[in-house]
């Protein structure tokens, strides 16, 4: 399986978020230079995924911190492209609107 097997938008976000699974997450992470998805990475991704499935959008970074117990700076370190282009993309969400 390869990223090329999935339809993504111009920014590399999954066009059909329902096709997402853990393998997809690992592939997207790897393409962003995250060699290994650690438990902390998964904690962030799972919260984002849960929020998306329940509310249809990406959570506030506050919610991510609150639910995972991670510090803000840790999240930026885990996902160098940030919560939107980094973590939300790995979690299979569509690209959020706005300046991200």
């Amino acid at each position: 399986m390869d990223i090329k097997d999935f339809e993504v938008d111009g920014d590399g976000f999954l066009t059909k978020p329902e096709l997402w699974n853990e393998e997809v997450a690992k592939m997207f992470a790897k393409s962003d230079g995250i060699e290994e998805m650690t438990p902390k990475h998964w904690a962030v991704v799972n919260i984002i995924r849960k929020n998306f499935e329940e509310k249809g959008n990406a959570p506030m970074v506050r919610t991510i911190c609150q639910e995972t117990g991670l510090k803000l700076r840790e999240i930026y370190e885990l996902f160098p492209l940030g919560p939107a282009r980094g973590a939300c993309r790995v979690a299979g969400l569509p690209k959020p609107d706005g300046c991200v």
Binding site: V61, R62, A84, G98, V100
Partner: peptide, 11 residues
Amino acid sequence: LNPREPKFFPL
């Protein structure tokens, strides 16, 4: 603010 601040980059 730019909304990306509260959403993702509040520092």
